[in-house]
Structures are given as structure tokens and as C-alpha cells.
Amino acid sequence: MLINKNEFRKQQLAKLRDFSQSYQKLQEDQFLQEKLIATSDFKNSVSIGITISIMDEIDTKLIINTAWQFNKQVFIPRCLPGRRMEFTQITDYNRLTKNKFGILENWQSQSTINNEPDIIIVPGLAFKSDGYRLGFGGGYYDRFLAEHDLMSISMVGSLRLIEQSCWSINDYDIPVKKLITIE
């Protein structure tokens, strides 16, 4: 049975919020980050696109810090008009500003823009095993991935992998190419 995306999004957010303070979430986040860092995609990359995680998202700080440790270029998204985004380079966590969604962005005028990083780590609330994801509802990543054929990877914790199809897939939905799961 299919559920309206907005209704399922609300249900999923409530589940993730309850889970976010648990020890299990901390363990899963650590495991998923380490598993992603161990992939050849990460090891062979020179540049990565990734969000600085907030609230209920899977933590990304270990990935970012490891990337810097290995002299990889790190690019974070910033929202543009028309529900578009671009990726700007960061070299530390200073001088970032929060957007209306509470996401840290880099708006320094001299920032390098790279919309073709070697890999892009895509956040989401829920994922099907075929890579289709339920995002936060803005369509930013679907628009971006439709325009850029990149190696897209998502980290999927236990509450984010949805075995039974419960939301509809639209023509504009773009699947993630690789899922990193806790299995």
C-alpha cells in the first residue's frame, strides 16, 4: 500500500527523531562512516560532495575529517534560487552560515565551486533497496543528480532502509547509485 510522500516523511521524521539520541544510532553512524571510508570509491576519490550533517541525519564529520586527513577536497552544498544547489569547497568548519533549513553552507565569495566531485554523499530519510530515496521534500538532490552523472552514495541506517515499497516513485526521482548499509 502506497502512502502519500508527505505523510510518510512526517512518520519517518518522528521515528528518526526518537532514534537520534540512542546509543544504537551512535554505533550505526560510526559503522556506516567507517564502511564508506573503506570503499574504493572513497579511497580513490580526490574530491567529495557531502553535507555537514544536522539533527537526525547520519553523522558525516568522521568522513569529512578523514577526507581532509588524506588531502581530499571537500565540497558542501549551498541552496540557490529555484530549488537548485551547488557545491563549494571548505577546508575547515569556520565561517559557515546556516540556511533556512538549518544546514551549514559556505557563502564566502572566493569559494571554489565544484559540481562534479568524484563522489557525492546523498542524505535521505528513507531508501528502497534499488536506490530510490525519500528526501526532505525540496527536490534539491534530485534536480542536482538529474544534471550531473556522479557516483552517488548514501549511508542507510536500520530505520532508513524500507523493504516494502510504501511511497510512489515519480519521473523526476533519481536513484542513488550505491547504498552503504549496516548489513
Score class of each variant (00 low, 15 high):
residue 1 M to A: 12
residue 3 I to A: 05
residue 5 K to V: 03
residue 6 N to M: 12
residue 10 K to P: 08
residue 10 K to G: 11
residue 13 L to E: 13
residue 14 A to M: 10
residue 19 F to W: 09
residue 21 Q to E: 14
residue 22 S to Q: 07
residue 28 E to R: 02
residue 29 D to Y: 03
residue 30 Q to E: 14
residue 33 Q to G: 09
residue 41 D to C: 04
residue 43 K to H: 12
residue 44 N to C: 02
residue 46 V to W: 14
residue 46 V to I: 15
residue 48 I to P: 01
residue 51 T to C: 05
residue 51 T to D: 06
residue 51 T to P: 01
residue 53 S to G: 03
residue 59 D to H: 09
residue 59 D to F: 02
residue 62 L to F: 08
residue 63 I to L: 02
residue 63 I to W: 05
residue 64 I to D: 03
residue 65 N to Q: 11
residue 67 A to T: 14
residue 67 A to V: 11
residue 75 F to T: 14
residue 75 F to N: 10
residue 79 C to Y: 11
residue 80 L to V: 05
residue 82 G to Y: 03
residue 83 R to T: 14
residue 83 R to H: 14
residue 86 E to V: 04
residue 92 D to V: 13
residue 98 K to N: 09
residue 100 K to P: 06
residue 100 K to H: 14
residue 105 E to P: 02
residue 107 W to Y: 15
residue 108 Q to F: 11
residue 109 S to W: 02
residue 115 N to G: 05
residue 116 E to W: 13
residue 118 D to R: 06
residue 121 I to G: 00
residue 126 A to F: 04
residue 132 Y to A: 09
residue 137 G to E: 04
residue 138 G to W: 11
residue 140 Y to V: 14
residue 143 R to D: 06
residue 143 R to P: 15
residue 149 D to I: 05
residue 149 D to C: 07
residue 152 S to A: 06
residue 156 V to I: 01
residue 157 G to W: 05
residue 158 S to D: 10
residue 158 S to P: 07
residue 161 L to G: 09
residue 164 Q to S: 11
residue 164 Q to H: 11
residue 170 N to G: 07
residue 171 D to I: 06
residue 173 D to L: 08
residue 173 D to E: 08
residue 181 T to W: 00
residue 183 E to G: 14
